[in-house]
Design a protein around this nucleic acid. Structure first.
Lengths: 134, 134, 134, 134
DNA sequence: GTGGTCTAGACCACA
DNA sequence: GTGGTCTAGACCACA
């Protein structure tokens, strides 16, 4: 079962953080079609956010067709975001892990790496509207 | 001269976006001690934010000792965040660029890469979120 | 036998959707006096709603005098809503079909047509909304 | 300035009704890029809904890229939905009005027409998930 | 003043 | 019990 980690200092709305974490899990194959998301109650117990905030996140995911809420039963994944290349990407993934280890042993901080990644993402994939990798 | 890109949809406060972009530029060596930040007026012309918002971002950077306001002259960088390893990191940086190119040609989207990077960052540097330091 | 199609995303209560679809079928002459509605069990098999939800819809139709429940036998239509003009409306109906075809070939989407129809309905029959009869 | 009409008996959530009415107005060319939507306060004065409900509707439109909220200034249309065919569709539109008049003088009720239109829409444009023209 | 987010609580639909 | 909607009120960001 996915567990949400809320960063209250990031300035990003809680419901957006939850929605983003679900989408990331879908892309990474950590959540798959048919999986149940934790109930609002369960999330509340684990993260101390208000149940309405969880429901709002789930409703937006529902509107995007990613999950479906069945009152009385729960909220279920109904569409995956896992790209084919993400499934068989062991070399790519381990290449990234290796790079991270290298960066760390070179003395870079997490913030340094995040800055480098933003720059490389913009070079490799074009600018997004803003520049927050968050 | 650094140019700010504001994403009004991200939900992140504008002044935080500006501050973050300055810090990223300091880490990447795109801004260095002595460099002048754009005036509030210049930022307003480029991004349509309110001058007070720019000033607030600069004040917070000032409080962290990163920039200094010289009335009549402008706001200047007075401390760098460039780690030693970031200066001589050509191989690391180009390694990241190469990885991005590989990811892209494997068919991954920007969002896919962002999800992979978050996971790898957490593995390599420990979780940032979940601290709930509120 | 009428088949119900439930849109879980519409935000309209399931029992209201079922009731509306029965009434529409009565108006269109697709259901007539004496016809049997599907049993709750049959509806459940076809649409995955709860049998109680079907029963609630049928009970409301019963309260309006449109259907009658005969224990052991099923639920039967006992009053039609087919206006006289709906019976002999071949020209009207085909006129509407022709208009739809024209709209479609003009490049209009279903949503475009729905917007036009709402406007034309309000012009031709007066506003339904705005009564706020709460 | 667009005026919202809320039907509290329809079973459709208020924020969905507001969002749908904005989209319809965009399709019909009644709202255009740059137009300002009424503030939450203005809508409250006109329709007695809670300001949060209005904001929620606007936020969803914002997420779909149709409007942009500028705190302190208001909420503005930033993308139209007017199909080219909707602009120069005088004959189509008047054809629909004529059909409505015909239907009315044949004795059809608004509900009869709505049932006919749903059927014709499904024939002309394919079934939607559910069947509520609403 | 205008918009954005969150909370607490109420009420309903559905299982 | 689970999810969906709405309200009232609080607090903050931005103009």
């Amino acid at each position: 079962m996915i567990e949400f980690r809320i960063d209250r200092r990031s300035g990003v709305a809680t419901y957006l953080q939850i929605g983003q974490q679900v989408k990331d899990a879908l892309r990474l194959g950590l959540l798959n079609v048919g999986d149940r998301l934790p109930t609002a109650k369960e999330v509340v117990a684990a993260t101390a956010v208000n149940p309405n905030t969880v429901l709002r996140a789930y409703q937006e995911l529902g509107r995007e067709g990613l999950v479906e809420s069945r009152p009385g039963a729960g909220t279920f994944v109904c569409r995956s975001l896992a790209a084919p290349a993400m499934a068989e990407n062991m070399p790519l993934r381990s290449g990234l892990d290796a790079w991270m280890a290298e960066a760390r042993s070179a003395g870079l901080s997490r913030e340094d790496v995040e800055a480098l990644v933003k720059l490389a993402l913009d070079k490799g994939f074009g600018n997004r509207r803003g520049s927050d990798t968050q």
